[in-house]
Design a protein around this nucleic acid. Structure first.
Lengths: 201, 201
DNA sequence: GTCTATAAATCGATAGAC
DNA sequence: GTCTATCGATTTATAGAC
């Protein structure tokens, strides 16, 4: 057991606080509307101090996104290895929606986003994204093989749809209406995602 | 037949050109990343001239959104009045996806967007939005009544989901991959929207 | 009405003292 | 490492000549 120097602990704690603020601000306002001044104010330090920890606004956002993917990978790893693939995927979708309701799920960096370009050249982010895609991809293949997932859709379409539903704006709209409890909202969105809008025979 | 003065015709043509540019730029970059300079350059006039037609960037965007809602209402009105509600809704969804593939569908103004606040106090926009929601709402009620739409989902959830799918980022992602023809992409998204990701019995 | 030029505000990033 | 203060670039919006 090597003792961790106090200095390094302080450093780590501060960076965690920064990333935590960035995640919430990203989820709340999005990358473009989030200003570095706001992040500094939210953390409670000066902007110049922020730049000692992260070299740019892009790096700041990338670190937050990597932390989010790590949380997703940790949840995936926590699931029993030998469950029904469909149930595994539904569990991941439910978890993602809970994160979104907690205000900690930034919307997907869209094709034209300025954030996307930065992320697409960020090796650590891409590594995590590929790893998560592979884990989900395995369940998708297994689900189509055992007949619980639609075979009429390419695995690619199912994967992208799951990522998109994790940030579905329908969730925020229903929550804002204030008419329904969080759990009810999540069940409806899971139902519409996996069973569709039309009636099942 | 009263003759329309040339001056007014010129005025109308120029405003149409402006709105057309704004729609494409909104769909391409979104409201925050779209600059008034770009709009002026795209139209081919000076920025100060733009401000003679529209008082602000927000008005510019609102006019574009109203035009889009008018197009949607025109399409809805073009459908046969006595069809199957489910087929009507699917036709609207298909139309919206085609518009998106044509690069003329801005993404929904999210809850936190700076555009949303402006639109929510824009009476003409709200009028159009309510009218479209009512037309779709009627079909949703009829579809649930005749058993073609899921009765386990509140009409509200179905309506919001249809709006969200019209700007679904999954469409742009699949198109960007370049592997599939546009019509194939649309059919898959319609399938996932109305029939869901899990297999139908 | 259209143009050039610029005002006013904001943002990302940095210098320099401590 | 943290702070205050500021730079340089960008953006919305406007003034004033034609």
């Amino acid at each position: 057991m090597t003792r961790v120097p106090l200095k390094e602990q302080m450093h780590r704690v501060r960076e965690d606080a920064i990333v935590s603020s960035v995640i919430r601000l990203l989820a709340d306002k999005g990358y473009d509307l989030m200003t570095v001044d706001e992040v500094a104010a939210d953390v409670g330090i000066a902007k110049a101090s922020l730049y000692k920890h992260f070299g740019s606004k892009e790096e700041l956002a990338a670190s937050a996104m990597v932390t989010l993917l790590d949380r997703a990978l940790a949840f995936v790893a926590s699931l029993p290895r030998e469950g029904d693939p469909l149930l595994q995927l539904q569990a991941v979708a439910r978890w993602a929606m809970q994160v979104q309701l907690a205000g900690e799920m930034p919307s997907l960096p869209s094709q034209n986003s300025s954030l996307r370009a930065a992320l697409m050249s960020h090796r650590v982010y891409l590594d995590r994204l590929i790893e998560l895609s592979e884990r989900l991809g395995n369940w998708i293949s297994a689900g189509q093989a055992n007949g619980s997932l639609a075979r009429s859709l390419p695995p690619e379409v199912i994967l992208y749809t799951l990522f998109a539903r994790a940030c579905d704006p329908v969730l925020a709209t229903l929550k804002l209406s204030g008419q329904y409890p969080d759990e009810q909202i999540i069940e409806w969105l899971l139902l519409s995602t996996f069973s569709g809008l039309s009636a099942r025979p």
